[in-house]
Design a protein around this nucleic acid. Sequence first.
DNA 1: ACCTGAACACCGTTCAAGT
DNA 2: ACCTGAACACCGTTCAAGT
Lengths: 229, 229
Amino acid sequence: MGDVASSRSEQRLPLSRERVLRTAVAIADEHGIETVTMRRVGDELGAEAMSLYHHVANKDALLDGAVDLVVREINEAVDELDAGGDWQVAVRTRILAARAVLLRHRWASRLLSTRAATSPEVVRYHDRLVGLLRAGGFSFDLAHHALHALGSRAMGFSQELFDPGDGGSADSLPPEVAAELPNLVAMLSEIAHDDPASTLGWCDDQTEFEFGLDLLLDGLDRRRVATTP
Amino acid sequence: MGDVASSRSEQRLPLSRERVLRTAVAIADEHGIETVTMRRVGDELGAEAMSLYHHVANKDALLDGAVDLVVREINEAVDELDAGGDWQVAVRTRILAARAVLLRHRWASRLLSTRAATSPEVVRYHDRLVGLLRAGGFSFDLAHHALHALGSRAMGFSQELFDPGDGGSADSLPPEVAAELPNLVAMLSEIAHDDPASTLGWCDDQTEFEFGLDLLLDGLDRRRVATTP
DNA sequence: ACCTGAACACCGTTCAAGT
DNA sequence: ACCTGAACACCGTTCAAGT
């Protein structure tokens, strides 16, 4: 019905690469990336799946293009930020702004880390980041290490391997399982004791992201000072 | 031909969950994860694709099981290590051992970060890691932050967003592109100048991984000291 | 030039039927 | 119980044909 692109009133706008990619992003945002199929994107545009091939090479190119649109959105948000002052503040602010955009397109981070394809927008983002580091007194060598050390965190997301809070409270586990996990069980029960209100969802993603980020930024600053005459 | 499981001499061993999963791992190791299909795994075992459904619920379960096999391999490697001494050394050694296993199954890290499914083996790995941190003087709270901060690095891999060395030497870029990337171009040319031999492949993954890891471990130790009476 | 209908190859999966 | 053949729904994609 009133779905992504309400298809009736518009008098069949001609397709374009831009419209195709924007539609893919919209579908992914609303229904998840796994529902983005050539047929579905075509439907949403009032066209056949096969028509898309005049504007994108194939499905891989469509997904690459959709991700690139998101990174462009990041770059636009980030270009407006103040690049002066303390480098740690500038870098931190920039990375958290990138994160805010990615939180609006939750499917994007997985694709971003999956497809090696280094899009111009991704490279541009990193170029500006190196600029901030240089302005903050980093050698090119240390800036280079910094990019690697930050990894996906540079762009505002990190790969959580498992959510320690997922299991709920410690005593929800079967005893024979709990016996095999003495440290996690103890950790969970201490947290539950300290803050009984929050058994589930006691890991605040944003807080944890910032904790890890600050750890890296502090460490990098220490290396910077150590290598600067 | 002499493929993953040479199918002739063996007198049709009965299928089992274990054999199905091991075959999936072997195919992924040799030909890539994208070649692992139900039909292919069946073929390799001299059975029909449909027979697999008696041993795994569906393809998702098969992939989960295959990843779990790899994590079990990590746990076996890691259980043999010395858990005593300096906590940083113990944790570092353990993480690099996990990394060594993952490098033998390069497809696994992507699946590991993709599927939220917190397998018993993954949870077990983290339980032991928390144990090391506790023994090193971490509070449960700080150990918890540490897990988040390490993220996928705890298990030996990190999400590289793009390889700054991928573009080759700086002057291989078209000039109008290079003009848009002043900082990366300068970074690349300085590296090329300092070490002319290595234009491509000048980022050593292992070195960069350890750099980022040490940054985090140092930062965590500093926090530990700051919070310990 | 842009769009389409029919068709193809290849998936995961169901189900009734075999032993 | 374990395994299988045929079939189904749903992909991405090719291609010749339309305007």
